[in-house]
Amino acid sequence: MEYFFGLLLGGLTRGSIYALIALGYTMVYGIIGLINFAHGEIYMIGAFTALIIASVLTIYGFSKIAILILAALVAVIYSSAYGFTIEKIAYKPLRQAPRLSPLISAIGMSIFLQNYVRLAQTSDFLPFPNLIPEFQFMKKYEHIFSSTELMILLTTAVVMIILTLVIKFTKIGIAMRATAQDRDMAVLSGVDVNRIISMTFIIGSSLAAIGGILIASHIGQINFSIGFIAGIKAFTAAVLGGIGSIPGAVLGGFILGWTESFATGYVSSDYEDVFAFALLVLILIFKPEGLLGKSKANKV
């Protein structure tokens, strides 16, 4: 029974990270209908930035909690700047182009960023310090659920609640939803769509950076290619839940996390990805729009 709960909680942790990254995919898709394949790289850049800041601050003897907060803050700002710039350079000029062009541009961006980090940093795996403090009261449960995992769950829960409140109640959130539903009408209401698109990239990139720091702390090492597989998995989660749907991305993340966790625990860790993608194929066969996705009615 304890083993089962261990897998359940492990899947939840994993799923919440997928959900954080999947939100970026789904929000961007909702607004401009583009799969931002460079999104995984933003997550990787977030982790690298946090590593650099944390290393520097450790030399200067900052306390652990100060390092965590500062590293996270800088990583979020830095990644947001990347997301914002990528949109301006690689997607905005192609907004009137056929749909395939920005997609190819996105893949190009992804390859470019990976290799840029490989050249600027290193192609080796780098050890990543655990930035997350150990909680004393978690000692008893250490063998099934660590402090780091608890922190991952709490952080993603808080971030998702904040995001939901922003999307639901703020002016910019309502404008984002309006733009996703009918861009021309949003423009006619006075919405500056360029600003909304930039905001979407900034929010998505911030979430990815937070995910990057959390998972790197958990796993303990990073390299330039971690964004690729995490990006593919998060993209899978977004499609599972219904791309364009925010609750869908979260649900898809958790389902994917659990699938992988239980497949690893009860079958073999070699089959982790097989189960994840088999699930995707099954859902796409029976519910092509994803679990919570809305099938697009043809406009009359």
């Binding site: 939803r177 309006a178 539903q181 009918d182 021309d184 009408m185």
Partner: peptide
């Protein structure tokens, strides 16, 4: 007020 009303359907 554009043709076809263009209400935001999910707002």
């Amino acid at each position: 007020v554009p043709e076809g009303r263009r209400i935001f359907p999910h707002l």
